[in-house]
Nucleic acid binder design. Sequence first.
RNA 1: GUGGUCGUAGCUCAGCUCGGUUAGAGCGCCAGGUUGUGGCCCUGGAGGCCGGGGGUUCAAAUCCCCUCGAUCACCCCA
Length: 438
Amino acid sequence: MADPKSQKFQTLTGMRDMLWPDSARRRLLVDGFVGLVGNAGYKEVVPPLLENLGVFRRIGEATDVVTKEMYDFEDKDGSRIALRPEMTAGVARAFVQHKPALPWKVFYTGSNFRHERPQKGRYRAFDQVGVEVLGPDDPDVDVEVIVLAWRFFEALGLEQVRLLVNTLGEHADRSAYSEGVRLYLESRRSELSGQAQETLQRNPLRVLDSKRREDKAVIGEAPRISKYLSEAAAEHFGRVCSGLDALDVPYTVDDRLVRGLDYYRRTTFEFAADALDAAQNAIGGGGRYDGLVEDLGGPATDGVGFALGVDRILLACDAEEVFAPPVTRLDAYLVDLTGGESARDLTHEIRGAGMSADRRFGAGSMKAQMKAADRSGARFAVIIGSDELVADEVTVRMLRRPDDGSHSDAANGGQGGPTDAQQRIPRRELIEFLRSRK
RNA sequence: GUGGUCGUAGCUCAGCUCGGUUAGAGCGCCAGGUUGUGGCCCUGGAGGCCGGGGGUUCAAAUCCCCUCGAUCACCCCA
């Protein structure tokens, strides 16, 4: 950095400012999600960004998220607290604290923080949207949750999304399976990559996730979860699959799908965006976490949910060229050649009537004001010159047609684009004029 | 935490290999052409300590070292 007197600040590593139109697109995406899950009976929950560190420890002592990536620090009273690295643990804590009626169906949107090396689709501050259902053990809940996410991707226009599902079995199944995998991998330890050997010591199941080529052969012959499943777990999973079939949601069972966080039991799932050439192509994931609530001091309660990565979804939308940012719309833009009082009064009058209006501060030449009017996306320029002022009239000029979603552009062939119709009307009729042409 | 690539105008980049007058282009922005009319066109203008620091040299955007940042991959995960 330069000399301290004139130090310029910029965003921290892995964090970024989102400016328009990216911010508009993100807003639209989040609003769409809220609408979708609201229709399914989910209510919003807004947990705090900071929690006692212990809340997040339950995510898994063997995970990087907990051991290496948390923004944790000491509070002023000496207690250990942390910025949330994900939402589920905080939501589960809220459940334990408030004891809401069952089933508790909630959704959330918000930022999470993980201290990792940033790369495409991975930031230290990232947005997620998600849902959680606490209470029912019914496999139909798993289905509802998965289908919700699937419909959301459909609504955005995404087509190259793959749904992967798996089951890790119940607690005992998972432990037995983990041990089975560990024994197997130990027996072929020398064939594994160095990284995989390290992972093996901490969390054998995670080795199955390795992307390194040298590990593939060994992983391919590893034991399958199906052999370790209890009857109940197998039946649960079977009903999840048949539910997805019934609702025509395509999926593939991937028995190597081991999700990162320790609290998952039974159903797990992940959404991969194939249009993303980046390594970070998981745009969402989730599963059952029966036992998490108990770990946090609550009654034994089943839970299932998912989290979707807003940033990655937007990246996937870019790759598939869908979900363009919304077009700016304005009902009127004021062009005032007489000093600005009319622009000031009319913008507020129009807004007060429930329509949208803007104007240019500092006025400028008519050309400058008209240019600004065009760029604003306004349908009409409302022009007030000295003639109009004296006659108590306004000139209303159409800048684009009602059905013209694009920015006006004379070069686009003229269909619905170029317009220049204008007329003078009494000033008191302006609101009615704009309203009748909305 | 490890490795590769890259930092020049608001944005996208040229110039760097073979150091040498006021560092360029396109887009965007501002103004004028059109003294009351946007989108197209033409003209002009503003805007850069060439990421920062140090070194080599008569001379560094250009060569060397360090540093910071970005980016991609590993790891991990959304």
